[in-house]
Amino acid sequence: MKISVTIARIIVGVLFIFSGLIKAIDPLGLTYKMQEFFEVWGREGYITPLMNWMYKCSFVFSIIMITLEVVLGVALLTGFYKKLTLRLLMLLMIFFTFLTSYVLFSGKIATCGCFGDCIPLTPIQTFTKDIILLLLISFLLLKQQYIKPVGVVLPVGLVLASVIAVCFLQMYVLTHLPLTDCLPYKKGNDLLQLRKMPANA
């Protein structure tokens, strides 16, 4: 059982860190995706004043979400405050699963942007991923007694370092440019070629 818990812990932790970092290289991308959700929900009449306010705060939400993903991934891998970490991970996964199910079943938003623009996934792929992660986190919650922190000082140091590192990364790319531009109109691409109608369109 301990081996199964360790494997699940590594999978969830690494995926959360990777997901956060892939968004951290372009936090504005997640901001625009959040704005798309809030705009659609506001237009549909779901507490429109609240959606309009959240639309304006999308950039702050983006920074917080990215940082939280990375920090929770590191916290899970190091065993830092495991009960709190697992509960926050579960809440995030329930929220993410709601978003991906909305994208999949409503058809009003093309993608959820789970891995940013660098790794585009179809709605069914993202929904399946979230269901698997939800099951893994549920398993970890049930078997959390097998999660042991890697020392006392190390988890605290790594969590603090991850907060500083991911915040610095986001500040850097916002001041300069994304470390990797995955959008079609990135530097070096031929704009005239990109504007042409694809074959058999």
Rank of each mutant, 00 (worst) to 15 (best):
Q170G: 02
Q170S: 03
I7R: 02
Y55Q: 07
V12C: 03
R195S: 10
L141Y: 14
V150L: 15
T85E: 09
D117V: 09
T67I: 10
L76D: 01
S162R: 01
Q170K: 00
G20K: 10
K143R: 15
M1W: 04
L30P: 10
F168I: 08
T6Y: 07
M54K: 11
D190L: 03
F37D: 06
Q193C: 01
I7G: 01
L183N: 07
E44N: 12
F139M: 12
S162V: 02
C114M: 09
L141P: 07
Y81S: 13
A8I: 04
P27G: 10
G157I: 08
V60C: 12
L30K: 11
E36T: 14
M90S: 12
T111K: 11
F37T: 13
I124G: 04
F80N: 09
R43L: 12
L154C: 04
F98Y: 14
L174N: 07
M1N: 04
L77N: 05
S62V: 10
V156C: 00
Q170N: 04
D117T: 10
F37M: 07
G79A: 05
L77Q: 03
F115G: 05
F139Q: 11
L135D: 09
L91I: 06
N189L: 02
F16M: 12
T85R: 11
Y146W: 14
F168K: 02
V71G: 03
I47M: 13
L84N: 12
N52T: 14
A201Q: 04
S62L: 10
I132D: 08
E44G: 06
M65Y: 13
L28E: 15
Y55E: 07
M93G: 02
L177Q: 14
L92M: 15
I10T: 07
C112H: 10
M197Y: 00
T67Q: 06
P184T: 08
Q144Y: 13
E69D: 11
L89H: 05
C114W: 04
F95T: 05
I3M: 00
S4T: 10
L158E: 01
E39V: 06
M197C: 03
V70S: 00
L21F: 10
L89C: 01
K196L: 04
M65R: 07
L91G: 14
A161S: 10
P184V: 03
L191I: 02
G20F: 08
L72S: 04
G151D: 06
L121Q: 06
V163K: 03
C182Y: 01
P49Q: 08
D26P: 09
F139R: 12
P198L: 02
Q35D: 11
K23M: 10
F105Q: 08
F98D: 08
V153D: 00
L191C: 01
L154F: 09
